[in-house]
Design a protein around this nucleic acid. Structure first.
Length: 594
RNA sequence: CGGGGCGUAGCGCAGACUGGUAGCGCGUUUGGUUCGGGACCAAAAGGUCAUGGGUUCAAAUCCCAUCGCCCCGACCA
């Protein structure tokens, strides 16, 4: 039964030459589930399980079943093609790293909790790599010694390991996942910008070819360090990241980084009244105090005590706002900003937690720009069970500096053009960083320039969560019946459903059509199960093959087969001798569209 | 790590409060009737009731501990 023609026409299938282009449902494993698994919360996770693409081994650890692996390979192939096109060089680095290399960059302590640690039989310490900046920089330090060998960009596609605090949503946040990571090394900042741009453009192409719409946002560099970065976000309500985009200009940013133009000064009162203590017994939170004093949360001035590089300071934001801790280091020019403990708060304010205010403090006081010019505000009085009202910050408190310190929200003003910002959720599928010399200095990665001078390599790094991207495709392309695969990443672009596998003329037509598709290099799955049509239709929709061909006695009587796109509602009847052309045209058309 | 929920057949669940022979639906196997959107009839297989301990004549059920999974939070490229 199995066609042997795959051998002599394997050249038609680029890269995936080891894979037979056609498959019978009864010969593979596609364990579809009729009901939603109890373990899954979001739709894409449910569908991964229901469509028989993955199975869970343990929390954050998944096995890819045949169909899931086919999709994974297709995404990887797109990534490889675009990386290669951009001039990046594929390598493969170890997943197991000696501890010392992480200590050299200082990240063993920074990322220590994220890394799985283990020891060999000699009790030598190792970690499972959560990322590979250290490893690749070590390589560059040894090999890229001459300007003639620069620029170079290396990439790999490999399993990464992270001891996530909470793995969730299936492949979205897993303990082991597939990542494409790339690293560029350049002679100077300008050349590094060009490398960055090449990767950025490659990413745009990759996600487009995967059939997903992404939004590029300015991002925080976090533990990666570096100066600048962009994230590629798949917009989805289930996304773990918040982001804002301008309704007018092109500004878009992760909430961790997003800035805003200062709003109009909050004038609640004329400002003629002087500060006055008011008893607020037991009212600690913003909500409690606002309700107690019958004022709006925004009228309160939230005062939080932080330690900036160890030294206490007060951070002030409007009562209806959150402090953005990611922005503090840069805004206040410190290395580390952490919330102070209760003892510190008590000693600098002289009051229990919940009653801190800026008036009379002897530590530095930094206020959000949204508080500039506020009149009639309410603050803690630095005394138990007491607040202060009629506060005009400029007049009543010694403000060390105003800065943009709070988390931006939808409705705030764009930092570029002043128009409204809109807030959305997104899934981070790609992240590109300009790292500068953080790692190349730590690893002494330098080269000799044309003049024989020693110079430090400028580095960039670029990640794509491959398995996360796979799930994001589903998150963005599905309906009530199941997945709708974009053609480029579908496990099979075509599924053929014989309505009655016992009917010989039906199977003769199926086999001939499948053979013809094979010769065109088109991968086909034949649902040759002896099941009722309804079952096959449901499974076909659930798994989401882009094109479905139904061969039944009803159509055959008119020498026709039915061809239907998964994303369309209407099927078309096609004469037998035109079916092949119709299908091929659809695939070509859809691949270009997507 | 804090808070909450859940572990009973491959999947989804009931049974637990009030201890007394392990249940239902789907799926699976066999036979038959069906056959263009998850058919019907009949028969059957399938369980350390998460694990360990305790109480009891008797524990899926009550008590204690542990483990695992899911959600919220903290946290996180």
């Amino acid at each position: 039964m199995i066609k042997s023609s795959c051998i002599n026409r394997s050249c038609a299938v680029q890269y995936v030459v080891w894979s037979k282009p056609d498959m019978r449902w009864t010969k593979t494993l596609i364990p579809t589930l009729r009901e939603d698994p109890q373990e899954a919360e979001i739709d894409s996770h449910k569908l991964l399980l229901r469509a028989g693409l993955i199975r869970k081994l343990a929390g954050g650890l998944y096995t890819f079943l045949p169909l899931g692996l086919r999709v994974l390979h297709k995404v990887e192939r797109i990534v490889r093609e675009e990386m290669d096109r951009a001039g990046a060089l594929e390598i493969l680095m170890p997943a197991l790293h000696p501890r010392e290399i992480w200590e050299r960059s200082g990240r063993y302590s920074i990322m220590g909790d994220v890394m799985f640690r283990l020891a060999d039989r000699q009790k030598k310490d190792f970690v499972l790599g959560p990322t590979h900046e250290e490893i690749v920089t070590e390589l560059a330090a040894g090999e890229l010694r001459s300007y003639r060998l620069v620029p170079r960009t290396f990439y790999q596609i490999q399993a990464k390991f992270r001891d996530e605090i909470r793995p969730r949503f299936g492949l979205m946040r897993a303990k082991e996942f597939i990542m494409k990571d790339a690293y560029s090394f350049d002679v100077d900042s300008q050349a590094a910008d060009a490398s960055y741009d090449a990767m950025y453009q490659a990413y745009v192409r990759i996600f487009k070819r995967c059939g997903i719409r992404t939004k590029v946002v300015e991002a925080d560099t976090g533990a990666m360090g570096g100066k600048w970065s962009h994230e590629f976000m798949v917009l989805a309500d289930s996304g773990e990241d918040g982001l804002v985009e301008c309704t007018s200009c092109s500004y878009a940013a992760n909430l961790e980084r997003a800035e805003r133009q200062p709003p109009e000064p909050a004038v609640w009162e004329t400002g003629d009244d002087l500060p006055e203590p008011v008893a607020t017994p037991g009212q600690r939170t913003i909500e409690e105090v606002a309700a107690f004093l019958k004022c709006k949360p925004a009228q309160l001035i939230k005062t939080m005590i932080y330690r900036l590089d160890g030294k206490p300071a007060a951070i002030l934001v409007p009562g209806d706002r959150e402090i953005n801790e990611h922005k503090l280091p840069q805004a206040l020019n410190v290395r580390e900003a952490v919330l102070a403990d209760e003892a510190t708060i008590a000693s600098v304010t002289g009051a229990p937690v919940g009653f801190a205010g800026p008036i009379g403090l002897t530590i530095p006081v930094y206020a959000d720009l949204g508080l500039k010019g506020i009149r009639g505000g309410v603050t803690g009085a630095n005394r138990a069970d007491t607040h202060t009202r009629h506060v005009s910050l400029d007049r009543d408190a010694a403000i060390t500096a105003y800065a943009d310190l709070c988390v931006v929200k939808g409705g705030d003003r764009c930092p570029r053009c002043g128009a409204d910002l809109a807030e959305q959720r997104g899934i981070e599928v790609g992240h590109v960083f300009k790292l500068g010399t953080k790692y190349t200095e730590a690893f002494n990665a330098s080269f000799l320039d044309e003049n024989g001078h020693q110079q430090t390599l400028i580095m960039g790094c670029y990640g794509i969560g491959v398995t996360r991207t796979l799930q994001s495709i589903i998150e963005q392309s599905r309906d009530a019946n199941g997945i709708i695969w974009p053609t480029a990443v579908a496990p099979y672009p075509v599924i053929v459903l014989p309505m009655n596998v016992q009917h010989e003329p039906t199977m003769a037509v199926v086999n001939r059509l499948v053979g013809e598709l094979e010769t065109r290099g088109i991968e086909v799955l034949v649902d040759d199960r002896d099941e009722r049509p309804g079952v096959k239709f449901k499974d076909s929709d659930l798994v989401g093959f882009p094109i479905r061909v139904v061969v039944g006695e009803r159509g055959l009587a008119k020498q026709q087969v039915e061809i239907k796109r998964r994303r369309d509602t209407q099927a078309v009847m096609s004469p037998l001798d035109e079916a092949l052309t119709t299908i091929v045209n659809m695939i070509q058309h859809d691949t270009q569209q997507e």
